[in-house]
């Protein structure tokens, strides 16, 4: 395998969850907003904290810190609003983050078969190896089922 095949350069947004940094593909990031009132109501999806109102939309708040770092965030400085592709429809999710986010361009190394499903790829930045997150694997939602073989042809 030669290097140009292995690396894919992309714009990414670095986000901080406690002591660790993770990345999201920039095209998945819609906005970074100050924390606003969170509305909670009865439901059965434990990964969801509640919803916020943003530009007339109701957006689910999903705290990834516990899953990714083992600890809930002590402080939420911003909500990173990201888009997900669910059943051929776009869906928004608000991710609490504990610090500033940074837009970078980085070379990506594809995730390997032994990596967790939430790792879409890896990147290296400032001497740190950072996971590029696969939001569909990390956040709850209807499972996307692969198309049957005949439909794929």
């Amino acid at each position: 395998m030669n290097l140009p095949e292995q690396l894919d350069s992309r714009s990414c947004v670095l986000l901080r969850l406690g002591e660790r940094r993770f990345a999201l593909a920039a095209e998945q990031v819609a906005e970074l907003v100050a924390p606003s009132r969170i509305f909670r109501f009865a439901h059965r999806t434990p990964e969801i904290d509640g919803v916020i109102l943003r530009r007339g939309r109701v957006v689910a708040v999903c705290d990834l810190a516990e899953t990714l770092t083992g600890k809930r965030l002590a402080t939420r400085r911003f909500y990173l609003i990201a888009t997900r592709d669910r059943q051929s429809a776009m869906d928004w999710v608000a991710l609490p983050v504990s610090g500033e986010c940074e837009l970078i361009r980085a070379d990506l190394t594809p995730a390997g078969p032994s990596d967790s499903p939430h790792v879409a790829a890896w990147l290296s930045h400032d001497g740190e190896v950072i996971e590029l997150l696969n939001l569909n694997a990390l956040t709850p939602g209807p499972k996307t089922t692969p198309a049957p073989p005949e439909a794929r042809a």
């Binding site: 439901h43 969801i48 109701v58 869906d91 928004w92 209807p142």
Partner: peptide, 11 residues
Amino acid sequence: QALPKAFCHEE
């Protein structure tokens, strides 16, 4: 508004 798709259980 429809429930966000992230809600995926009985709700």
